[in-house]
Amino acid sequence: MIYLQLLWVFVKIGVLGFGGGYAMLSLIQHEVVDNYAWMTTTEFADMVAISQMTPGPISINMATYVGYTAGGFFGSLLASFALCLPSIVMVILIIKLFMNKKTGSFMGNLLKGLKPAIAGLIFAAGLSMMNSQNFVQIGKGENNISIVICVLAFVASYFFKANPILLIVLSGAIGFFVY
């Protein structure tokens, strides 16, 4: 049963995941945390951090991690494969049927139209993670460090395009020394 659920969830994400790994965050979060409760919101945040810090495609990293948590070794293989399945089908279709520049420009326009919505989707995933589980004990003096870390990391990432892995390592170091 769990295998069927994993297959269904990640095929769906593979079909609807326009715009790269980050765009899939909202979809994965909705299924994994809200729908099936395979992970808590803190586990989800930790999973995103680990997926970001390891080499390879972030979405494959996330699928493997979720699959492992929900269904062990076979779950992880199944989830990654399920995520790739729509791509495989699409490649076959496009190569056989209509791979040319014209459809390419149409798809490009489609993606351009999708971009604002994708950005909103990613932003919503971030907002949903801003909760008391991930931001420890907001409102009690010293513990507002969570907010400080978040603001600093945001500024460093948005304005200075700082390396995300470096930011994760630094935040981890702050956590180690402060808590």
Binding site: M129, L167, I168, A173
Partner: peptide, 24 residues
């Protein structure tokens, strides 16, 4: 490990919000 990840989680949130705003 828990201490380290307590620091990392709010950073992850920022790392999701920042690129989405840049995209917008």
């Amino acid at each position: 490990v828990e201490r380290i990840f307590k620091g990392i989680r709010p950073c992850v949130v920022a790392l999701i919000l920042a690129p989405s705003l840049r995209m917008i």
